[in-house]
Amino acid sequence: MTTTALAQRIEVDGRPATAESLLWPALVQTGHFTAMQVRGGKVRGLDRHLARLDAATRELFGHGVDGEHVRGLVRHILRDDITEASVRVYVHAPDGQPSHLVTVRPPTVLPATMEARAQSLRSVAYQRPFAHIKHLGGFAQARHAELARGAGFDEVLLTGPGGEVSEGAVTNIAFFDGTDVVWPDAPHLSGITMQLVRSRLPAAGLPTRQAPVTLADLPSYAAAFVTNAWGVRPVRRIDDVVYGIDEKLMAAVAGAYEDVPWDAL
């Protein structure tokens, strides 16, 4: 995976960011965002990104979001010189009205092989509050992820009472029982990549269902994989439970994602 931690462009409501315009986002954590990968000036699942922004803005601030306005803001910050990028659109409401902060970073590219993409996860007893919103202020999940990486893992698996599996810190997870792909039904963020993949798996010969999954259930599954804005990756292990990389499964999952059309901004 290649990326960078620093934003190369930041705009607030279509204007270059200033110290003044960044003061509210820096000090107030009430807000939400969506993250997308841009290729050739296009985005997969653009309608879902816009719907996410609209729904969360209505819930948090009582206002809707104009999707065409958001598209215009993203086009504006990319201009004519950036066609490949990682873009985030944040929504705050410093004066009671939605304000959009847009950042641009270089694109994230996953390794070509599933072997190189494989993830190891460490389970932690934590669930994101208001998990259905991609909200700000995720200190706990970020700290758990840092500690997991320090212990030799790639990511964390968030769990609730009784070891109920919900999601990763920045991923959704699915399990394969040899026939069906099972998505945990504990509180989680419905990721855009998860939505796109899940809707297309039945056509690829992989039935899907949502069901409770606990840590005690993990050895009963044949394989697992995670999804997020970067794409799909197999899971190599969770704690002491080791999974083989099911190349046939991952080819079907990756193929379902690759078949998603790109939407022009």
Score class of each variant (00 low, 15 high):
Leu73Trp: 04
Gly205Asp: 06
Gln119His: 08
Gln210Trp: 02
Phe225Asp: 01
Gly255Gln: 14
Phe175Trp: 03
Pro184Lys: 08
Ala125Thr: 15
Thr83Met: 02
Val241Ile: 11
Arg105Leu: 14
Ala186Asn: 05
Arg88Lys: 15
Leu110His: 09
Asp259His: 12
Val12Met: 14
Asn172Arg: 04
Phe61Tyr: 15
Val242Ile: 08
Leu46Pro: 00
Tyr126Trp: 15
Lys134Phe: 03
Asp185Gly: 01
Leu157Val: 00
Val235Lys: 00
Ala125Phe: 13
Glu155Ile: 10
Gly40Leu: 12
Gly96Cys: 10
Gln8Cys: 09
Tyr221Ile: 05
Gly191Asp: 09
Thr4Arg: 07
Leu147Trp: 13
His100Cys: 12
Gln37His: 11
Leu189Ala: 09
Val70Gln: 03
Leu206Asp: 02
Arg58Phe: 13
Pro187Val: 13
Gly168Ser: 02
Arg44Phe: 11
Met194Asp: 02
His188Asn: 08
Ala254Leu: 11
Gly138Leu: 15
Val74Ser: 06
Val12Thr: 08
His132Phe: 04
Thr34Ala: 02
Leu121Phe: 13
Arg117Val: 08
Ser220Lys: 13
Leu249Gln: 05
Ala204Glu: 11
Ala85Val: 06
Ile82Ser: 01
Leu23Trp: 05
Gly45Val: 06
Pro219Glu: 12
Asp95Met: 11
Leu27Trp: 06
Gly191Ala: 05
Ser120Val: 12
Ile192Thr: 14
Gly40Arg: 09
Ile10Ala: 01
Pro219Val: 12
His132Gln: 11
Ser99Lys: 10
Leu218Val: 12
Leu53Phe: 12
Trp262Val: 02
Val213Trp: 07
Pro184Ile: 11
Ala148Val: 15
Gln141His: 03
Val232Arg: 04
Pro25Trp: 08
Val43Gly: 10
Pro94Cys: 08
Ala256Asn: 09
Asp47Cys: 07
Leu265Glu: 09
Gly191Leu: 09
Val104Ala: 10
Gln37Phe: 01
Asn228Ala: 04
Arg48Asn: 06
Phe139Asp: 14
Gly150Met: 15
Lys248Arg: 10
Ala26Ser: 15
Met194Lys: 08
Ser99Val: 12
Val165Lys: 00
Ala125Ser: 15
Gly96Thr: 07
Asp95Ser: 13
Asp54Cys: 08
Val235Ile: 13
Val12Ala: 09
Ser99Arg: 15
Ile192Gly: 04
Thr4Lys: 03
Arg88Asp: 06
Ala148Asp: 11
Phe225Pro: 01
Pro25Phe: 09
Ala142Thr: 15
His69Glu: 06
Ala254Glu: 13
Trp230Gly: 05
Gly14Ala: 02
Phe130Trp: 07
Ala264Asn: 06
Ala169Glu: 00
Gly40Asp: 14
Gly152Glu: 10
Ala118His: 10
His63Gly: 04
